[in-house]
Design a protein around this nucleic acid. Sequence first.
DNA 1: GGCCGCATGACAGTTGTGTGACAAATCCGC
DNA 2: GCGGATTTGTCACACAACTGTCATGCGGCC
Lengths: 224, 224
Amino acid sequence: MTAVLVIEDDDRIRLALLLALEEEGYTAHGAANAEEGLRRQRQDPADNVLVDLMLPGLDGFECIRQLRRDDDVPIVVVSARDDTHDIVAALEAGADDYLVKPVAIKELSARLRALRRRGRAVVTPAAVQVFGDLEISADAGEVRRAGRTVAVTRTEFRLLCELAQHAGKVLSRQQLLQRVWGYDTGDERLVDVHVGRLRQKIEEDPGNPRHLVTLRGLGYKLQR
Amino acid sequence: MTAVLVIEDDDRIRLALLLALEEEGYTAHGAANAEEGLRRQRQDPADNVLVDLMLPGLDGFECIRQLRRDDDVPIVVVSARDDTHDIVAALEAGADDYLVKPVAIKELSARLRALRRRGRAVVTPAAVQVFGDLEISADAGEVRRAGRTVAVTRTEFRLLCELAQHAGKVLSRQQLLQRVWGYDTGDERLVDVHVGRLRQKIEEDPGNPRHLVTLRGLGYKLQR
DNA sequence: GGCCGCATGACAGTTGTGTGACAAATCCGC
DNA sequence: GCGGATTTGTCACACAACTGTCATGCGGCC
């Protein structure tokens, strides 16, 4: 069974697409905005994703880019705008096809089939973030220091990724607790402990950290 | 350098496309009818083929089918007819995309790029992947370790292929359940068991896997 | 000097993973 | 169809790794 995720803010259009897709034999799920769509796709990846370009909050282009980071899923843009600039930008962002509303469901279905036939993307090397002698690859779930892979635990990895995502910026313990652990409240010392453990692994001299630095009274930040 | 073959009987349009493509940095060749196009592609395969639907003699649909028989080359239809039936028929025949004339060259170029990015044709025709002393032949359904063929079951093979397709990247148990078993939900331990069995067969020291490694809390990945 | 924030080591409870056993399902030659 | 062999999925258990809490001590800062 082929699953399709439809990210579209207009309720009427979304429902119409979902119904039409199910009519065509797909399992279809909807999301009303980019954030919800991304979460869904992470939790339970569909085989195809349909994205509208004009979304509240995170826009379609950014949504495509983030989808592409995690996944090779075929992405089809379904937009009201028939404009070469938009089409090119969407394809460059990582979309595989672009359809202008209103779409004929038979065409959509045929295009989805053509995309699946072509299969998943060629094995692309995992994306890597570099901080001096420190390399982080979210895809590969890997951290390297001076070329050597170091084993970090899941929590440490999440913490590191969160810091890397906001490289150079201070993140308070509260923010980290929230984003890494999902705690709205809790003991901030917990962050210290894990930062300490992380330093043991990724810093040359853990007592004198160069990448994962403390900003007294503010929090931590990751830098080159 | 990327080569494109344009099969189009209207001289003016063909020349315009060839010029525009060269402007975009492609090497472009033309053919005025299907027979000539097929011959050219056999003799000196291009990386992409553009086909008009209305051709003298052999028509575009048949041309696509014959191209597809020999080759996985990405095929884009460029036609004056904006009709769902034609679009669906062309895609079913084996085309990868369908553009309605007049085409914006920037859009065409972006679509060609998107296709190549995805194309299995361009990169993995042999479909034998090598991971150090481990070889996986997707076509032949064979797995070899250190030159010796090892017998793996169908499930194990699919699991291995899925991991190989995303070589070097972590796949969560959820993703594997979804992609290998098609389960939307289910016991993740199932994945563990099959990974364990696979290791017995493909790893030199199954207790100390070098290729099929666990990333605690994240999932599994296949590496060199 | 005293206070506060941070680093660190130890520890117990929890979680995640590997593995062997087993029964159901499937395959296959006859 | 039939019976044996293979494959598949479930379960339980053991073990190792990880997590969060706490206590202690150090060092900067007012």
